[in-house]
Amino acid sequence: MNIFRLAGDMTHLLSILVLLLKIYATKSCSGISRKTQELYAIVFMARYLDLFTDFISVYNTFMKLIFIASSLAIVWCMRFHPVVRRSYDRELDTFRYFFLVGASFALALVWHDKFTLQEVFWAFSIYLEAVAILPQLVLLQRSGNVDNLTGQYVFFLGAYRAFYILNWIYRYMTEPRFTRWIAGISGVVQTALYADFFYYYFISWKNNSKLKLPA
């Protein structure tokens, strides 16, 4: 484990904590896309099928369980929590996400490391994660004003992706035969989706003003 990978995992964890904090402290999920959260729940469940077959480390297993449990808990809150669900921006969260699931699965059937159930689902989860943020970004764009915790949530998610790219560059340079085409290319695509958001995030941070996305 190198420092970039650890920083990536920690910012990922932090993003989830910020989101849970927002929901818990404000009893509101306004500005959060339930569709993105549902996609993440699918991503983690599809990717971590290896929990049943491989053991890598206590850290690895623990993090996998955290990601699955937290994404399911967030989706549960947004759908069923008597107070939280009322603040869900249903009319803004209209991205047709079944298209993303279908396209990711189709791509996984074509491009995978091995044609086994586990490997196809792993590739599917990588492709789906790359685009899972789209409903969230569209929702933010539509609502214009972004509250602090929601802005920080998306910022930490983007930081997690950026650190993973640094991690791959580091591993590519230090480990013999390290190549990860599927994860690498998808990871670059995923990180690029955050570029626009980052731009406005840094401007608002520099000016010490509220984050606003142009319509």
Binding site: R5, D9, D54, I56, K64, F67, D113, Y164, N167, R177
Partner: peptide, 10 residues
């Protein structure tokens, strides 16, 4: 020499 691409990342 072929090394299995272990899925050790999250």
């Amino acid at each position: 020499l072929k090394v299995k691409n272990v899925k050790d990342e999250l």
